[in-house]
């Protein structure tokens, strides 16, 4: 494995109505992007429990992306605002775990923003590659 390029593990929680649809549009437009991200569909970004994200980091995720509708566009009125507030706190928790808060990202991607999905995924993947492996994973792996 040593000779292979470092391939980060990135998880993306995508809200069903905006960001998952934006990812679909990127797909049907055949926009190419790096493969590191694995997407998990949720109905709303407000469904993403910060515990899930901390768990993801503790179990080896190098980066976590949560993508939802733009502020004001939430399919459920204001779920994305709740998400934003919860993750503000999450970043502080990450610091105490010696995790770079930038390993977590919250992005707003609408259903028409296929190119933006590609940009976010590409840029985030590059960024995580630059950060290297998740330090907590190294500490906890036996």
């Amino acid at each position: 494995m040593a000779d292979k390029e470092y391939n980060p593990k990135i998880v993306g929680f995508l809200c069903n109505w905006c960001s998952y649809a934006g990812a679909d549009l990127a797909g049907s437009s055949k926009l190419k992007m790096p493969p590191a991200i694995s997407s998990i569909r949720v109905m709303c970004s407000s469904r993403v429990d910060p515990v899930l994200i901390v768990t993801a980091f503790l179990r080896g995720a190098d980066g976590v992306l949560v993508a939802g509708c733009h502020p004001g566009d939430c399919h459920y009125e204001k779920g994305n605002y709740y998400a934003r507030r919860r993750f503000a706190l999450l970043r502080k928790v990450m610091e105490t775990l010696d995790l770079e808060p930038e390993r977590f990202r919250l992005s707003w991607i609408s259903a028409s923003e296929g190119p933006r999905f590609k940009e976010v995924v590409t840029e985030f993947t590059e960024h995580i590659k630059g950060l290297g492996p998740n330090p907590v994973k190294e500490k906890t792996s036996l």
Binding site: V42, M43, R47, D49, V51, L52, H75, G79, Y82
Partner: peptide, 21 residues
């Protein structure tokens, strides 16, 4: 069915069906 309550519940009592923890 947005699941916001499931993410907010501190005791794990709220469950979002088909999107459970």
């Amino acid at each position: 069915g947005c699941g916001n309550c499931a993410a907010a519940c501190p005791s794990g009592a709220a469950r979002h069906r088909h999107f459970t923890f």
